[in-house]
Design a protein around this nucleic acid. Structure first.
Length: 188
DNA sequence: CTTCGGATTGGCT
DNA sequence: GCCAATCCGAAGA
């Protein structure tokens, strides 16, 4: 991987579309990503400064920032750096293009189309968990004409309206949009 | 120390 | 369409 995947996450994110990420014997062509900036982005884990959890985001580019959510899921980002400037791009969905049988074994019962359709599913298909946080990732730039779209980020309650989600227009492996769920009313 | 809520998913109504 | 699952990081007391 070279500088095409480094720099401002807002610029890197669209370039990541159609790129191929390989890990754990499986390769995925990215069809959907989301950009997360640093201290100025209320939706970013880095918004409140560096902690043990998000430390990788503050490090050099080209590494996985993996986090654990909802008590059962992992999500993976590509840190775009530069060091000290916590930008990252969430890998939201893609198409499995190699290691299909391995990916199927990791997600029994899933259709091929759904193997990496969603950030937690993509992590599962690639065999990514917290032990891979900070690990350098293997990503190869995509080629050819590509039509992309952008829109609001998914699942956030803060700053979701920023159109920092990018996807390959019309691709069937792009996840379905789901607005952030509203929690039960404060009172009772 | 305790409480809150989450960059989601899959199953049930 | 709605909601439980299920653990942890961050914030508040």
């Amino acid at each position: 991987m070279t500088d095409w995947a480094e720099g401002d996450p807002l610029e890197v994110a669209p370039r990541l579309l159609n790129a191929v990420v390989s890990h754990g014997g499986v390769s995925v062509r990215l069809t959907e990503v989301e950009a997360y900036a640093g201290p100025d982005d209320p939706g970013s884990h880095a918004f409140r400064g560096e902690t043990a959890r998000n430390a990788v985001m503050f490090g050099p580019p080209g590494r996985f920032y993996v986090y654990f959510v909802y008590g059962m899921h992992h999500c993976a980002n590509l840190v775009t750096g530069p060091a000290g400037d916590p930008g990252a791009v969430l890998l939201r969905a893609g198409e499995v293009v190699a290691g299909l049988d391995v990916a199927r074994a990791r997600r029994p019962g899933s259709s091929d189309r759904d193997l990496a359709r969603g950030p937690a599913r993509l992590c599962r298909a690639l065999g990514i968990d917290l032990t891979h946080n900070g690990v350098r990732l293997d990503v190869v730039a995509g080629e050819g004409p590509l039509q992309t779209s952008s829109g609001p980020r998914v699942g956030l309650r803060r700053a979701a309206e920023r159109p920092w989600r990018f996807w390959v227009t019309g691709d069937p492996t792009v996840s379905t949009y789901r607005p952030a769920s509203v929690r039960r009313p404060a009172g009772a």
